[in-house]
Design a protein around this nucleic acid. Structure first.
Lengths: 202, 202
DNA sequence: ATCATGTTTGGCAGTCGCTGCCAAATAGTC
DNA sequence: GACTATTTGGCAGCGACTGCCAAACATGAT
């Protein structure tokens, strides 16, 4: 039965895999198009499935959730974040490490326009925002051990402090991206991030 | 039926209003009981309505959302937060003002046990967390003008900085309350808050 | 007490996201 | 071509939530 554990190294892409990928991309494109055209809440799964040429059932098999249709690589975000931070040199402080992680995640976007589009949808749709914040909270929790080790835990409550530091970094990222969106993508997000950090820790 | 001996909020209430209030309280109590007994996600609206002796339709008329059954006075939180902060003296800095607001909100809980119960549910239920974060984001946005005026806007992007500062305060509150919950309510949340702030801004 | 008034209530049907189940279509293998 | 392993689609159903309509009800006027 269990025949998987396949190393995706080579390219023995079976026809199945290719079809899968194609369908997946078709669904994703359709979803993003409809979302930006008529809004997230106004777009139903039925409509996406219909226009993408698959059944609802199949759509849900590819993407377990309506939110997943937008945040496609959200899980990848978390992974890159963790990887980047753990790769930082041991001498790097928490703030430095977190900054590197944030920068790495921002660099993941395909293009400036795509990033702007996604951020805009995210910041303007309550239901999406909620889901995103939730997922992000999980990232924060995963980051906890990585950051704790970098903190000079003079006194107790190391956990609380690490959590606070991590959440602060995300808070600055939020403020920065919001401002960036309301400026229609003018300037660099990381510059805004640094400004926010300065305002908080200055 | 039960004759509740509650703090008599004597007023020229009509029988209607009293009945309404009673039903409302009955629903709220039932919901909280079931939530803590069997979990939030595992409790259905149908069950709450049945055990509270009202129809689903009526339940939804009192509380528009399942989440509202827990966060009863969430809107009040936002109000107290705003009021407290705007009452701070003009010389008070942003951090001082925000601290006062946080303290005021925490003081709203009826009892330590109730606060612990709610926080525990909140932190352990993904769906609840998401909704709560969303609502809080709206609070933050409301706070924006109040905080902006207290910031020495030397350079531009006052909005971004104010947002970052506000979000940082909430981040510390989060870290503090999480730690408080995992310590089973030992100690003072505000002490943890101060510790988190020190870790962030120190 | 009775009637008219405006409000509250409950039931029913329906939407939307999402899941389990099962039979039919399809890719890969012999 | 036959056989096996997946993938797919359709259907029924759950749970939160809404609109609609008729019955139940408190209240004020008669």
């Amino acid at each position: 039965m269990k025949q998987e554990a396949k190393s995706a190294t080579s390219a023995p892409t079976t026809l199945w895999d290719r079809t899968r990928q194609l369908a997946s991309q078709e669904i994703l494109d359709t979803a993003l198009r409809l979302f930006t055209q008529q809004g997230y809440d106004e777009t139903t799964i039925a409509q996406i499935a219909r226009e993408a040429g698959v059944s609802q059932r199949t759509l849900f098999r590819y993407f377990g959730t309506k939110e997943d249709l937008l945040g496609g690589g959200q899980d990848r975000f978390g992974q890159v974040l963790m990887d980047t931070i753990s790769e930082q040199s041991a001498e790097a402080g928490v703030w430095e490490a977190l900054r590197a992680g944030v920068a790495a995640v921002l660099a993941l976007h395909d293009s400036r326009e795509q990033a702007l589009e996604r951020f805009r949808l995210l910041h303007n749709t309550a239901s999406l925002r909620a889901g995103w914040l939730e997922k992000r909270l999980r990232f924060q929790e995963n980051l906890l051990p990585l950051i704790e080790t970098r903190m000079d835990a003079a006194t107790g409550n190391k956990g609380a402090k690490a959590r606070a530091v991590i959440a602060t970094a995300f808070a600055c990222l939020d403020a920065a991206s919001m401002t960036w969106v309301s400026n229609d993508g003018k300037g660099e997000i990381m510059d805004l991030y640094d400004e926010c950090m300065a305002a908080v820790r200055g």
